[in-house]
Amino acid sequence: MQDIKNALIKKLSLILPELPVYDEAVEQGMQQPCFFVLLMEGNQARGINRRRQRFNSFDVHYFPDRDAAPREACELMAERLYAEIEYLTGSEGGYRGTGMRHEIVDGILHFFVQYNYHLFRERDPEVKMQTMTQGGGLK
């Protein structure tokens, strides 16, 4: 999950390098306009044998400039995010965003996207026999 979050933050930084991207709650000194990346939900589904599928839902907040028309700025940013963050490249591979949608609440853009990926769980170590002594003879 952290690899996806880091890839998303990196992608947002490349799209608009002049805007700060936060991934933790900032109580003081938040500069606007900016992005805030929040992992909303993560879950895992079991597949066949040792296969697993992970689902990670993110909410990318966009806080527009206080001096600009907030609704218009949020709508323009939403259009840009649909095009820009569908595909991410992390250190562990590529990710494709699904279920993208957005809403504007109180002048703040909430852009929802889900990144899913497959896992292959390692086998548990097998217990091997230590030694065996065989006895026998002919009668």
Rank of each mutant, 00 (worst) to 15 (best):
Q2E: 15
I4H: 00
K5H: 12
N6L: 13
A7P: 05
A7T: 11
L8I: 07
I9W: 05
I9V: 15
K11E: 13
K11F: 03
L12Y: 05
L12T: 08
L12G: 04
S13K: 12
S13L: 06
L14T: 14
L16A: 15
L19Q: 05
Y22H: 11
D23E: 09
D23C: 08
E24C: 05
E24D: 09
A25M: 11
A25Q: 13
E27L: 10
E27C: 03
Q28K: 13
Q28I: 11
Q28W: 07
M30I: 12
M30G: 04
Q32L: 08
Q32W: 06
Q32M: 11
P33K: 11
C34N: 10
F35H: 00
F35K: 02
F36P: 02
V37H: 07
V37P: 07
L38F: 14
E41L: 01
E41H: 04
G42K: 00
N43K: 11
Q44K: 10
Q44P: 02
A45W: 01
A45D: 10
A45K: 15
R50Q: 12
Q53E: 14
R54M: 08
R54I: 10
N56T: 07
N56M: 03
N56Q: 08
F58H: 02
D59V: 03
H61E: 08
H61S: 10
Y62V: 03
P64T: 09
P64L: 05
D65H: 07
R66V: 14
R66T: 14
R66L: 13
D67K: 15
A68S: 15
A69C: 09
R71I: 15
R71G: 12
E72G: 10
E72I: 15
E72A: 15
A73N: 04
A73I: 08
C74L: 07
C74Y: 00
C74P: 01
E75W: 03
E75N: 14
L76P: 06
L76K: 09
M77L: 02
A78F: 09
E79N: 12
R80T: 06
R80C: 10
Y82R: 08
A83M: 08
A83K: 10
E84Y: 09
E86V: 12
Y87D: 13
Y87G: 04
T89W: 01
G90K: 00
S91L: 09
E92D: 12
E92P: 00
G93R: 00
G93A: 04
G94V: 04
R96Y: 04
G97N: 05
G99H: 03
R101H: 05
R101G: 03
E103Y: 05
E103H: 08
I104N: 06
I104Q: 09
V105A: 11
L109M: 07
L109W: 02
Y115C: 00
Y115V: 00
N116S: 08
Y117R: 01
Y117S: 01
Y117W: 06
H118Q: 13
L119H: 03
L119Y: 03
F120N: 14
R121H: 05
R123M: 15
P125K: 10
V127G: 07
K128T: 14
K128R: 11
M129T: 11
M129E: 12
M129W: 04
Q130S: 12
T131L: 13
M132P: 00
T133R: 14
T133P: 02
T133F: 08
Q134T: 13
Q134E: 07
Q134K: 10
Q134R: 12
G135M: 14
L138T: 14
K139L: 13
